[in-house]
Amino acid sequence: MSAIPISFPGAGLRTPRWATVFAWLALLPILVAAVAPELLTSASPILINPLHALLPPGGDHWFGTDQLGRDLFTRVVHGARPSLLLGLGATVLAVVAGSLLGVLAALGGRVTDQVVGRALDVLLSLPQLLLALLVITVLGGGVANVVIAIALAFTPGYARMVRTEAMVVRRSGYVEAARGLGLPPTVLVARHVLPNAVGPLLVLATVGFGTALIAGSGLSFLGFGVQPPAPEWGAMLSEGRDFLGDAWWLGLFPGAAITITVVAVNVLGRAAQRRYTRRTV
């Protein structure tokens, strides 16, 4: 009744506007590279030319060439799509699975909640990357399996969050009000519980996407994901590892691509998170 916004808590933590602009500027070429790599380079990412092996960055080869004489710039550009897809696929899969499990645990009664909850506890007790490696050991390598492995590693965290949110929403005044209107449970879940429980997660998932991308590149680096000669940032780092002493550019450019993408997506995710909380809290 006498609450007055004398100061605005968290005002100092806001993502500055220039950071969001910067993040978009950094992400834009990467997105173009992922959608239409031909726009940025006409060369082939897998064309071998031993005569030009390990050339430093220069006029003909902006990022230099690798040990087989392939143009590194072309490979980084063409590597955007598989790298992003690994992270995106895994994130989408994890969000969907996590939401389903979370809502099931929250609304399915005590026994379901206990069973799902303990299963999630087991998965959460293992480090994410280790869990992914475990899955790959069982399923074998390959892009699809890497996506599944990463998704499985990220699902428990999302499921936990959705469960907590759904518990809160289920007891909220507006679900009770909707129940009072005579709406059946299915409509309550579809119209009120699900969107309000999953909404915050979608924002968090943009941040999670960065982590998933690193995990994907990490697994490719270890030789499980995208197989050579196809370009993928993590795999490129792995291939270039042996020549790093002579050719620093083999590590710098794919590594920078990963870093820039992850940082930019994180910045945008945080900004979206703040917008979302402002609208609903």
């Binding site: 909220s172 005044g173 507006y174 009770e176 009000a177 909707a178 119209r191 009120h192 969107p195 309000n196 909404g199 609208r279 609903t280 809290v281």
Partner: peptide, 12 residues
């Protein structure tokens, strides 16, 4: 009709 209409409305 509830005391806290804000809580009885879906915020979205």
């Amino acid at each position: 009709i509830y005391q806290d209409p804000l809580g009885s409305f879906d915020p979205r």
